[in-house]
Computed example of a mutant assay.
Amino acid sequence: MTDGEGLAAGYDVLLFDLDGTVYHGPQPIPGVAEAIRGLRARGIAVRFVTNNASRAPGDVAATLRGMEIDAETAEVSTSAQAAAKILGDRLPPAAQVLVVGAPALEAEVQAAGLTPVREVSPDVAAVVQGHWTETGWKHLAEACLAIRAGALWVASNVDATLPTERGLLPGNGSMVAALKTATNTEPVVAGKPEAPLFHTATQSAGATKPLAIGDRLDTDIAGANTAGVDSLLVLTGVSTAADVLAAVPAERPTYLAADLGALDQPADDLTPGPQKGWQVDVDGDTLVASGKGSSDAYALLRALCHEAWQSGVTDVRAQDDLAAKALTELGLPSSR
């Protein structure tokens, strides 16, 4: 990166989502380690903000270092920490909390001065639920009984899916949905799209102008908007080009790019709006795209988003071969 140039230069801390943004399961996304090293070399603070409650911050930092991504434990903020803070604020000291989740979530509950348990009893004051690959019917059954008896229910996050190197797998939100159906109750949500994770991570860096970076419209981007934070959506994880075209106002990013290489690009070039080299017109219920010399598919997507968000039209037609090629790269069907 060159000093004073690129999107990152306008912010004093970058808040990175992990799953789908920095890595897919055990595999780092290409270019991430280099991008983060470049930020640190320029004195820009980095924080890792994740909805995954299954691992302790120290373990997350160690995993990142194993991928040659510089990270310290204090730079990691998890939804397990956010959930434990909610519980600590609402419950008396040593209150029993039934944990549906990983040992890391249990440890955060204990660190908040509460008593984690795994089975329901009349003394259980709350249920906390976070992602854990071992969660099964017996865990949900215990939680169901406690919630139905009136226990406070806190979910670390409600991501329906979890991006991995094998594809999208069930996330904590899928397990939360099962309990919502069984109890007819809504949980208090601790992680994204709520704001606390963003504020806590920003404060930990002593920063005032954060940029949130993520791959999910419904958590990363919606959470940034809730927190009043600028955001960059990268299409390396869950949300697709079609998703961002149809995004509701609360889930629209400030910037849009293919991947973290965008941190080197000027901010204005990454903002959804008219793009040099592309023409997008609204023809009835169709967006008509034509190339005017550009081959950058993601520039076309930013132009399409500009028109789609104003008109509500999301169907796309390519007017020429250049546009057709770009739409194919974006995975957008064309009526041409």
Score class of each variant (00 low, 15 high):
Gly25Ser: 04
Leu14Asp: 00
Gly58Gln: 06
Asp17Trp: 05
Tyr298Ala: 11
Ile147Asn: 05
Gly206Val: 05
Leu168Lys: 02
Glu5Lys: 14
Ala74Leu: 06
Val158Gly: 06
Thr78Leu: 00
Glu5Met: 13
Glu119Gln: 15
Gln27Thr: 15
Asp269Trp: 12
Thr161Ile: 10
Val109Lys: 06
Leu263Asp: 09
Ser239Met: 01
Ala177Lys: 12
Ala323Lys: 01
Met1Val: 12
Ala324Ile: 07
Asn51Asp: 06
Asp320Thr: 03
Asp281Gly: 08
Asp320Tyr: 03
Ala35Phe: 00
Glu34Ile: 06
Pro103Glu: 01
Asp315Trp: 10
Pro249Met: 06
Val117Arg: 03
Asp243Tyr: 10
Val127Asp: 03
Arg42Val: 11
Asp264Met: 10
Leu197Arg: 01
Ala250Asp: 14
Gln110Val: 11
Ile44Lys: 00
Leu304Tyr: 05
Leu98Glu: 00
Asn157Phe: 00
Gln319Asp: 15
Pro163Asn: 07
Tyr11Lys: 13
Gly228His: 06
Leu217Asp: 09
Leu39Ser: 08
Ala258Phe: 10
Gly277His: 00
Leu105Pro: 04
Pro253Met: 11
Ser290Lys: 15
Pro193Met: 07
Asp220Thr: 07
Thr314Leu: 05
Ser311Trp: 08
Phe16Gln: 05
Ser231Arg: 02
Val22Leu: 15
Asp159Arg: 09
Pro28His: 02
Ser79Thr: 01
Ala155Asp: 12
